[in-house]
Every structure is written in C-alpha cells, then in structure tokens.
Nucleic acid binder design. Structure first.
Lengths: 154, 154
DNA sequence: CTGACTTTGACCTTTCCTGACCTTCGTCGG
DNA sequence: CCGACGAAGGTCAGGAAAGGTCAAAGTCAG
C-alpha cells in the first residue's frame, strides 16, 4: 500500500528522530541500494517530502566523498509558535504551502492527524470553489482563523 | 430496492464500524472490482453519502500507491447536536445568521468567548472581501470546517 | 410521463519510478 | 602543475499507476 517513496520518507525521518542536532548525512547510493531502487528515486523523495515548506533543508556535495545532508528545522518556543505560524502564512498562501504547513504541525504533534485531515479537506473544498486571487487570500484567512481557534485551548 | 450505491455505502460503513480510530483507507479500484462496477461509482457514493454534513471527511491521493481515506466524525456528545447545526448551516449562510449561530454556541459553552470573538472577526473579514454569492458560500464552508475541527476531541 | 437518483465510460490530472545523460569534485600519474 | 579518470550526486523526460471529472444514458417511484 505505502509507496516506495513513502517508505524512504519514513526511513529518513526515523533516522532524523534518532539523530541529535536534527541532522543526518547520507550517501545517496547506499539508501538506494537498501531500498533496491535507482539513486534518483532518493532525489524524488527529497524534492517532494523534504522541502523548506515542510520544515527541512537539504544540502549536498558531489564528487568523491560526496554526501547529502538533511536538516530538520524547528520552530522556536511554544509561546510564540502561533505567532510565527501566522506570520509565515502571510496575507495569502498557496494550496501546497498550506498543506505542507498542516503536515508540519501534525508532525510536531501540534494537531492530531484527524484534525489535520479535516483541515486539509476544508482547504481543498474551499480551493475548488474560488479562483485566484481570492483562493489564496481566503485560504490564508481561513487557516489563521482555524489555527487561532484551535490553539486557544478552551 | 437497494441500489448498488446503497450496497457500497453499507459496505464502507461496515468497514468503518470494524476499524479503530473511525478511519479506513481503501483503494478505489479494489472496491469497484468487488462490486463489479466502474471506479467512478465509488466517487458517486462518496460524494452523495459521505459528506461532512453526514459526518464524514474524505481525503485521497492520486498516482501510484494512491488511496482514499474515509474518516467518521465523532461529533462528541451529545451525539447529533453538532451534526444538526452543521446541517442547518446549509450551502450558504448570511452574515447575521452566522453571527447568531456563534452567539448561541458561545452561550451553551461550546466555544469560549475568545473563540467566538475571533471567529466573528474572521467572518467579517470574509464578508468585506467577497461579494455575493461567494461570501455566503465561504462563510458556510468556514463555519462547518470550524465545527468539524473544534469538536473533534483528541 | 417526469424528475430525481444511478450508472457508465471517455478523458483528465496527479504521483510515482526509472534510466539515460550531465555536472562536480577528489586524486593520481606524468 | 595539470589533465584524465573515477566516484559521487543532479536533471529531466517518459511511461505507468493511481484517483477525479463530467455529461450522457438508464432506472424507478409517483
């Protein structure tokens, strides 16, 4: 059921969980061999699941002794979290960035996966109904409203 | 007479009953094959019988390893009340009706007064930015999304 | 007979995976 | 010094594998 890309993603994230400093260094060819796939599959996974929007930074070096380094970005202290998020949303936000943000929130446990699913579904419904530029503007305001209400525990 | 759509609906709901977490993940093509029908019949069933108003949220992903995920909302207690509210909102709602609804939710303690204030502010912003009929539609969508997320305990 | 609900199929979009070919970097022989 | 070579990683396009959309045709109760 889970695709190869999903499995590689999970594996890399589990490595990140174990690692201190939220950083790991891998050899592309090694990972590819472990999962019995072509090396460029690793690039695909990195490009689709480890973007800055999703909270990761990837650097690499070619040539002999080359490597790929993955950093997991962390948000600052919980007190200012909501403010940081709202700031990063801005006045408008694209569908992909919005969903990446939800994924990130779920990953750090700020929202449950059920809440993530519902917010995602809401955003998609809203997306289908509106055209640019309204969709981005409304999406941003919807997201901020929902997060504010959600984090206002009680 | 039980139509094919009815049978598929019953089947999916029985899967949901068995599943923990009130969530199942299916492959469209598989279900279609089990019922010997075209895959798009599954979309029809989902679109007509698993809507948010009926207490369900559907998420999906395309492409290789794609899936369809169905979540059943718990709606907390008392069962039915929030679902009724959600239904009563309909496809669109006026600014006044929406604010009245928020007032009632705050009165019965379903949301805090801070939450009420924030939602009210959000609704007013939408109103200023959108013209009929979009404003009513987006208002309804935002309200329903909020109810779904807020009353999803856990 | 008519309107609402079902069912189907043709065509579309998204996501995944691979393989051929390209670029960068270290190193080693001349 | 320096240029060829090997060992990384990068790019990109194409084909395959899902699921989505929409409108036309079918069915059925009233």
């Amino acid at each position: 059921m889970a695709s190869l890309a999903d499995n590689i993603e999970r594996y890399l994230k589990s490595l990140l969980d174990q690692a201190r400093e939220g950083m790991i260094e891998i050899r592309r060819a090694e990972i590819a061999q472990e999962f019995d796939c072509v090396p460029s599959q690793i690039n695909y996974v990195l490009a689709t699941r480890f973007t800055p929007e999703q909270g990761y930074v990837v650097e690499s070096r070619r040539g002999g002794g080359g490597y790929i380094r993955i950093l997991r970005l962390s948000w600052g202290s919980p007190p200012g979290l909501l403010q940081q998020i709202c700031c990063s949303i801005g006045n408008e936000i694209g569908q992909e960035d919005a969903e990446a943000l939800l994924g990130r929130l779920a990953e750090i446990g700020a929202i449950s996966s059920r809440q993530e699913a519902m917010l995602r579904a809401s955003l998609r419904m809203e997306s289908r109904m509106l055209d640019p530029p309204w969709d981005g503007i409304i999406r941003a305001s919807l997201l901020k409203a929902m997060l504010m209400v959600l984090f206002e525990e009680n």
